[in-house]
Write a protein that binds this DNA or RNA. Sequence first.
DNA 1: TTTGAAAAATTAACATTGTTCAGTATATTT
DNA 2: AAATATACTGAACAATGTTAATTTTTCAAA
Lengths: 195, 195
Amino acid sequence: MNRKEIQEERMKNYFIDATKEIITGEGIKALSVRSIAEKAGYSFATLYNYFKDVKDLIFYCVQDFSQECREYVVSRTENEERGIPKIKKIVKSYVEYMVQYPGIFDLFYVEKIATDGTSLSASDIVVKFIDELCEEELQYCIAQGTFRPGEAIEIMSNIRNSIIGILLLYMNRQHPKSYYDFVVSVNRQLDRIID
Amino acid sequence: MNRKEIQEERMKNYFIDATKEIITGEGIKALSVRSIAEKAGYSFATLYNYFKDVKDLIFYCVQDFSQECREYVVSRTENEERGIPKIKKIVKSYVEYMVQYPGIFDLFYVEKIATDGTSLSASDIVVKFIDELCEEELQYCIAQGTFRPGEAIEIMSNIRNSIIGILLLYMNRQHPKSYYDFVVSVNRQLDRIID
DNA sequence: TTTGAAAAATTAACATTGTTCAGTATATTT
DNA sequence: AAATATACTGAACAATGTTAATTTTTCAAA
């Protein structure tokens, strides 16, 4: 990386960090080109020298957040008993993270991010995200003979769909009303799907 | 209903119908106060004489659409064999309807519709919608001894969450890529959850 | 060190969005 | 017919994303 690339990278990061701060802080509704630029310490027009448009900028945030979420999940689950208990714990940690940062959930699943080919990659990251978090442990279960390979795929699909559905209803439609009921509901679903 | 109320009702319907046409036709992204008013044949400002704001107007559409969807599902399932096959068919018809009108799916689950108490009712309608469609047939299954009551609740939760999740990923994140794969995926999930 | 051209940053502007308000036209009542 | 109430509308506002023109900064060559 030459001098110019380093500087450009740095500038990009100023905007990316500002965006991430707003999303985790005030939430996605507070996000605007102007609010980002202000937090980054530049004019809103400067942003367009480094990103094609605001969707492009947000794409970088998706990558960063998925990495952060992955780290959170790993840190919360590394000492968990392997196999089914660990899969459950991974999913629960993932849910915790999303509830903690509703803006990230919006970004991942709710916000419309693409019509053209560029952003398909953002969709790809997001769609396979839960599966990826569980991948290693699922392989472990298959190796242990807990699941057959075909069965594992079906279980994972069911977990993925259910969790995204239940999160959407909780975050976007306030159902269930309380966080406690929500957690109970998540646990029950997981028990039903896996056991 | 006196003269005045009849007229007010009629005016409301002009705007509601215009909104519904745009949502089912051009989709939710084409929806604006001005596009609605133009289609209704009035100024955009007139809209505010009949609706508190655009969210209020949209609430009426949610009610109408859920009624239309209900009728669609009934018409597609009335001759189906009762019990589990009928439940599956109801859910599949519901999914068909949503895929046909992505704007309605957006409206039901994706669009942010409320912070205050008024719109909680819109959320309520939407959250319990799939459950309600299956309610009668689920009771039939319980009466037949196919499910225990507690089990039925868990199954319904799993269906609801999974279907909303799978629809969200298909509509918002183009996963699976093809409609065929999507249908296969829906069928597999249903089989897994119910059988 | 000065100069001049390339790069970067900013201001101004545009087209949309939802919403409000002051005014005008229409309908109703006296 | 005049007075009053109702219905409707266009202008205006604030906020949105984006683009173009313009100013400021950078930095190598003279």
